[in-house]
């Protein structure tokens, strides 16, 4: 069985990250920018999938947290004159702290009520970005000085790209490990049944807070890198449509699947760039993708990968809807049963 190693999810990731590492050698500036966006969206999709796919908390605040990370990083540079390297970690941690507070409403609310409360939180964040003009410079946005890459032996233009690449790879490996650890299993148990999870000794407050903290840290990191990449931040980049883009990525890739997040993010960044000129078409396409996947394949593209590629392992992949398990589908927790499940599906 050498074939599974060749066509499995690990080889897909190795190929993608290898290609992204080699990209600066032959890409022009625009392609490099798109590659960089792809890396950022991989981080965002991983974080959102931890929250929605693994922990089963349907929240709509990720775009706002992403914005807090970007604004935090940029404003520390503009107002206090910090360097990018000092401001970025602080911005990411600030986003994480604010995002973690959302765990408290999540204790009382679930399902659509959590979605509505976080939607309101996201809109309130937008409102602050628009109206707190003395600090955030309002609707027009503002310029951020470019990060200094004197200490990396590459060309200045490539600096942020290689930093993004390294951070993305690091977070991907971290997600991969942590979702297979006790924490990841606790998230999945919580998603599949809160009462059952509690009776197994999983403290809901701790793990919900952890899910929000992890996902908002990812969003904060992506925001910090975004401000360094673009050199400009404005509230529009973090609106509801941004949220829909991220949501579509994890739904298309596969809820509760680490590799699915990468797959969905990489594919949809491409779609987004093809349609960049036409906002209306972007909205229609992303909306239609959400509907189509909810109707025909709510488990995402990863289902097809599992079916067709023998080396594809996704032990904790969500095998139901967003928060419920459809009858006839086995929400397997152990890796072995998942493989049996996959092979049973193939035959």
């Amino acid at each position: 069985m050498t074939l599974p190693v060749l066509v499995g999810n690990r080889s897909f990731l190795a190929l993608l990250f290898g290609a992204l590492l080699a990209l600066p050698a032959f890409a022009n500036q625009y392609t490099l920018f798109v590659g960089n966006l792809m890396l950022l969206y991989i981080i965002l999709a991983l974080g959102l999938n931890i929250l929605v796919g693994f922990a089963g908390l349907l929240a709509f605040a990720n775009a706002a947290i992403y914005g807090i990370g970007a604004y935090g990083t940029a404003l520390l540079q503009v107002h206090l004159g910090w360097s990018f390297w000092a401001a970025a970690p602080v911005g990411a941690v600030l986003a994480m702290l604010i995002g973690t507070l959302l765990a408290f409403p999540a204790l009382r609310l679930s399902g659509i009520f959590l979605a509505l409360a976080t939607l309101a939180f996201a809109q309130a964040t937008q409102w602050v970005l628009w109206h707190w003009q003395s600090v955030t410079f309002g609707a027009g946005g503002f310029r951020v000085p470019p990060p200094d890459f004197g200490w990396i032996p590459v060309k200045q233009d490539y600096g942020i790209y290689f930093v993004s690449w390294a951070v993305t790879l690091g977070l991907l490996l971290f997600t991969w490990r942590i979702m297979r650890s006790r924490i990841g299993r606790a998230f999945v148990a919580m998603r599949d049944g809160e009462i059952a999870a509690q009776s197994l000794g999983i403290d809901l407050l701790t793990y919900k807070a952890m899910a929000f903290a992890l996902s908002s840290f990812y969003a904060g990191v992506a925001g910090a890198l975004y401000s360094g990449l673009l050199g400009f931040v404005s509230p529009e980049a973090f609106d509801l449509f941004q949220m829909i883009i991220q949501k579509a990525m994890i739904v298309v890739g596969g809820l509760g699947s680490v590799v699915g997040s990468v797959l969905g993010a990489a594919l949809l960044v491409y779609v987004m760039e093809v349609l960049r000129e036409f906002k209306s078409t972007q909205e229609i396409v992303f909306g239609a993708l959400l509907i189509a996947f909810m109707v025909f394949q709510p488990h995402g593209l990863v289902v097809f990968m599992k079916r067709w590629l023998p080396g594809w392992e996704e032990p904790l992949h969500l095998a139901g809807g967003v928060q419920s398990t459809a009858p006839g589908h086995d929400t397997s927790v152990a890796g072995a049963t998942s493989k049996e499940h996959a092979s049973a599906e193939r035959t």
């Binding site: 349907l58 399902g111 659509i112 979605a115 949501k247 739904v251 959400l290 909810m294 709510p298 139901g320 809807g321 967003v322 928060q323 419920s324 459809a326």
Partner: peptide, 8 residues
Amino acid sequence: HGLASVLV
């Protein structure tokens, strides 16, 4: 697929 899927 559940009410949350309907919301999405």
